[in-house]
Computed example of a mutant assay.
Amino acid sequence: MKPDLIKMALMLGLLSCVGPFAIDMYLPAMPAMAEDYGVPTAMSQYTLVSFFIAFGACQLFYGPAADMFGRKPPLYFGLVIFLLSSIGCALAPTIEWLIALRFVQGVGAAAVMSIPRAIIRDRYTGTEATRLMTTVMLVISISPMLAPLVGSLLMAPFGWPSVFYAVALATVASLLLIRFALPETLPVDQRVPVNPAAMLGAFRVLFRDSYFMGMTLIGGMGTASFFSFLSVAAFLYTDYYGLTPSQFSLAFAANALGFFIASQFAANLCERFGGVSVVKWAVAGFALSGLLHLLLNLAGVDDFAVLVALLLLANGFLGLVVPTTMVLSLDDHGPIAGTAAALGGTLQMMLGAVAIAIVSAVFDGAPRTLVAAITICGAVAVLLSVVTLRQPPQAVTT
């Protein structure tokens, strides 16, 4: 890979890690936090739901803002909000305050979810964009491997609030990275005027583009699958299977390994077979792995090693689906890349938040709820791919 691609991938990957870090690092703390506040498990899971609702919805504002004011000013704004709310989370006196502050934290984190995608689209398209996107995913994949372990190590001597102080320090590092290393990729003469009508027109174009919506929702099923896992992982692994926080961190990292490895082959596979073919076959593999897992569970197979192995397999297929659908959804929308990335991110986060709410509501402590949710996500993704990819994308006027 070219040196400039590697440099950009590292910067965007580190920025994009801020939001996931606030999720993954926090997971081992959820049981202890629920115990400290004296609340049931479901109450602690609402801290995830509130974060994801804001994380998804607020991308709708950051995307157009990035098209109007450039890429860097909205990043500064979002990260400052994220920094202040992270400190507030560490000091929250009640679970209700924590839920509210997690919402504010999600408002800030939304900036580093959508804008890096637009930065990629500013510079690259096609295979180069896929290669950069997968390299960014490589950097992001380090987060679920290391963040829970770091969180569990901090919790032991300092308690769960230390997790939020660590996130605040990472945010300061991100602000310095933007200030001194990240270039502005949207020149002034290419920015969209501050015009609400133009912004609504851009959203109208995107909602009418069936190819954009289809690719976004296919990736969204992957997001919903992973968020279903996030919502119950700490309780399933520690309460049902009896893992310690450190063991949970290692098992959680193993689940990210499949995504991590597969995503590195996405660009080469797209170059050889085409992005559409990669999405078709990877979605089919994701759905079949989920179905196999459900059938084994229904047959009475309830083994931790089997659970981890099949989750790793499913996440491997998602490592091909997620970055490829991101690139394909933005290819025809260069002039409104920020808005397109924001809408795509919002829809995917909303699907994830819905998945968390449903799975948390019906979770009974056993793995079957999670396995069924992943299987349903795979089945819906297959249906979406059949509808979306049965004909070539139509030209769309932006």
Rank of each mutant, 00 (worst) to 15 (best):
A111E: 03
L75Y: 04
P116E: 01
I120S: 03
L84W: 07
L91K: 14
Y124N: 13
G108P: 00
A100T: 07
L101M: 06
A118R: 12
R117S: 14
I115Q: 11
L98M: 12
Q105S: 06
P74L: 01
S114H: 00
Y124D: 14
R123V: 13
V104L: 15
E96S: 14
E96Q: 15
L83M: 13
A118V: 01
A90Y: 08
I95Q: 03
S86L: 01
V107F: 01
R121Q: 13
G126I: 03
I119L: 09
R117C: 03
R102H: 04
A118N: 06
I120K: 10
Y76M: 05
A111D: 01
F82K: 02
R123P: 07
G108Q: 00
V104H: 01
D122S: 10
V80T: 15
A111M: 06
R123A: 14
C89L: 05
I115T: 07
A92H: 09
A90R: 01
G78N: 01
L84C: 15
G106I: 05
L83D: 09
G126W: 08
P116L: 00
R123K: 14
L84H: 10
C89D: 03
M113H: 04
I95L: 08
I81F: 10
I119F: 07
A92S: 14
S85A: 13
R102F: 08
F77E: 06
L101V: 13
A90H: 02
L101K: 00
P74S: 03
M113I: 12
S114Y: 09
L79H: 11
L101A: 03
V107T: 07
L101Q: 02
C89A: 07
S114D: 06
T94Y: 03
L75M: 06
Q105N: 08
T94P: 10
L75I: 14
I119M: 14
S86R: 11
V104W: 12
V80S: 08
R102Q: 09
I120M: 07
L79E: 02
A92C: 05
R117E: 08
I95G: 11
S114N: 10
L91T: 10
A118F: 06
L83E: 09
I119D: 09
M113P: 07
A111N: 09
A100P: 02
L98W: 06
E96P: 13
L91G: 05
A110M: 05
L83W: 01
E96V: 10
Q105M: 03
L98R: 05
I87Q: 09
T94K: 02
V107Q: 02
